[in-house]
Design a binder for these strands. Structure first.
Length: 290
DNA sequence: CACCCGTGGCC
DNA sequence: TGGCCAAGGGT
């Protein structure tokens, strides 16, 4: 007797084990899905939850956010990290208001034209907010496919074409099952088939897992680029300056920026970078959020 | 394509 | 302690 297809097993597991996350609840608005996807780009779920709730209370529609200064978005972003995402989300809200009558677009094509929306986010919104049939592939899904299907400890570096083709092959025929599998594969990767210490004893597809069957061979493909040290980096200095700007309620004079970092050249470089990115603005009285 | 972009928690 | 990781995207 053949085992059920992978997707069917994972979906059954998902129905019993999925976390109750706000963006999975019935009736959660497309705008809320979009905001959550922005916030979840490289930021853990647990840190997103409170910020998402605040954000949607304050700006319940794209038009509400579009009407606010971009700096308000950057301040509300708080410590989620990568504050350019706040700027992009604000820009996307303006674009949605101007180009789409205030309604989050439904097609991947239109979604991809929004600031800060790439291959993952466009498909996630189309699939999860609008129920469109698309492969949705994030880092969790790529890891699950690498292990369970390809027998590799880690996925190769992301490749949109290959990743989407891999996932398309796994999607079950019924649209609702396909949609659920997109979420279920991500959930499995996030909760069971984790990067560091996968919980194979709890995995619903352990029996089908090619990596497990092969004896958990080490990853042999190209290594991930080593990320540069954060301590002492420009990113750290930008973060310090931006934190000061977020908490300040009037423009920051140069003398207020100086104590944030000892190296003047690096301080200047970081500040110029923030200005160039639109995260900071120079005024006669000092530097502020946009 | 390589590199850049925050922040915090974990082992 | 420090490297790694987290629902990526832009340039």
């Amino acid at each position: 007797m053949n085992a059920p297809p992978l997707a069917q097993i994972v979906n059954a597991w998902y129905r019993d084990n999925a976390r109750d996350l706000p963006w999975r609840r019935e009736g959660f608005p497309a705008w809320g899905i979009l905001v959550s996807e922005f916030m979840l780009q490289q930021t853990p779920v647990i840190r997103v939850l409170p910020r998402l709730d605040e954000w949607l209370r304050r700006w319940p529609t794209p038009a509400d956010l579009a009407a606010a200064p971009a700096g308000d978005a950057v301040r509300a972003w708080a410590n989620l990290g990568y504050p350019r995402r706040a700027l992009w989300l604000h820009a996307a809200a303006v674009q949605i208001t101007e180009r789409h009558g205030g309604v989050v677009p439904r097609s991947v094509e239109d979604l991809l034209r929004l600031s800060g929306v790439g291959d993952y986010t466009a498909r996630a919104v189309a699939a999860f907010a609008w129920g469109e049939r698309h492969p949705v592939v994030d880092t969790n899904t790529r890891r699950v496919i690498a292990r369970a299907v390809k027998g590799q400890a880690e996925p190769a570096p992301p490749s949109a074409v290959r990743d989407l083709a891999d996932m398309t092959e796994l999607l079950p025929d019924p649209d609702d099952e396909a949609r659920q599998f997109n979420a279920a594969a991500m959930e499995l990767g996030a909760m069971v088939c984790t990067a560091r210490s996968p919980l194979c004893a709890e995995c619903p597809i352990a029996a089908q897992c090619v990596w497990r069957a092969a004896g958990y061979p080490d990853y042999a493909g190209p290594r991930k680029a080593v990320q540069k040290k954060y301590e002492g980096s420009d990113r750290q200095v930008r973060g310090l300056i931006l934190a000061a700007l977020r908490s300040a309620h009037e423009p920051l004079a140069d003398v207020a920026v100086e104590p944030l970092w000892p190296d003047a050249a690096q301080r200047t470089r970081a500040l110029e970078g923030l200005v160039a990115d639109g995260l900071a603005v120079r005024t006669a009285r000092g530097v502020t959020l946009p």
